[in-house]
Design a protein around this nucleic acid. Structure first.
Lengths: 161, 161
DNA sequence: CGGCATCCTTAGGGATACTG
DNA sequence: CAGTATCCCTAAGGATGCCG
């Protein structure tokens, strides 16, 4: 009997078919955000942090590391750097989420929810609440027909086209 | 005006409140699976891979790295190692997903979907389909009341209790 | 088959000091 | 404030070879 948590590979994806996942977009995503510091900087960006020193301090990394990660995240298009000046103040810089960066939010929530369930004895320190209705926010897998789906109920196929 | 992609920190979470995210479960999760090889091994586990050599070959990592990551993932409880013997065959080992490991699936799907949208010009090489109805599988954020939610519509609060 | 031992290179990251 | 420069350490990972 096979593990009920595995997906089912169909069509041209069986292990002996020569499929090597070289175009795997999980791997591609990890090329961009596989480091702890990169994902924690993204977390801070979602929390509203925009300034260099705040990123370094709140993530708990040194300035050289913050500088390297921020530069890479800007190069990859997840953050954009802009100067701004409030009336009577000097020019400041800020890093802001781009659409590409903002779209990474489900990854962070999925990591947080997993950690809440498996790595914290009190279910995690914070809660995400839908502002409109106050209900807790969850991450889930579902199909286009609206059914909730688990890993064991999934077929994997080459994208047709 | 603030970035519409950021969440809103409420109550005792404002930047000057002393909140330092030291119990952050995103950070804790990344302690377990922040390396590329760990997450790609988990991907392979979901694809049904169970044997040492297959992990190393299909992930594209050397045996020493595969050995180190598999050992760590077993220690962390995401995989379990077991011996099995088919009738008339010699004993083999296999690595199987635990409940804790299987629960990581949404993280991998979220990474894959992000990569499909932003890092591949054809929307990604593979599709996940709900076996029961054949419809594509998506990952989404929603509240307990069933509303779809985006990052800009979320309040973050300390967990009450 | 399922590893481990050894050696090597590179990347991630900290500490400190310095600059515009 | 927003970094850069320098130095150092450790972790990630590849290559090769060996072993039960």
């Amino acid at each position: 009997m096979t593990n009920t948590s595995t997906v089912r590979l169909t069509g041209a994806l069986e292990p002996r078919s020569g499929w090597k996942a070289e175009r795997c977009t999980i791997a591609k995503s990890l090329e961009v955000v596989s480091t702890r510091s990169a994902l924690l900087i993204m977390r801070e960006a979602f929390y509203g942090t925009t300034r260099f020193d705040d990123f370094a301090e709140r993530v708990g990394i040194s300035e050289p590391v913050a500088a390297a990660r921020l530069r890479e995240l800007v190069e990859e298009g997840l953050l954009e750097r802009e100067d701004y000046r409030e009336p009577g103040q000097r020019t400041r810089q800020q890093y802001r989420l781009t659409a590409k960066g903002a779209d990474l939010f489900p990854v962070l929530v999925a990591l947080m929810k997993w950690g809440d369930r498996w790595l914290d004895d009190r279910g995690g320190p914070i809660e995400l609440l839908h502002r409109d209705c106050g209900e807790p926010v969850e991450v889930s897998l579902h199909c286009a027909a609206g059914h909730e789906v688990h890993s064991g109920e999934i077929d994997v196929a080459r994208r047709r086209r």
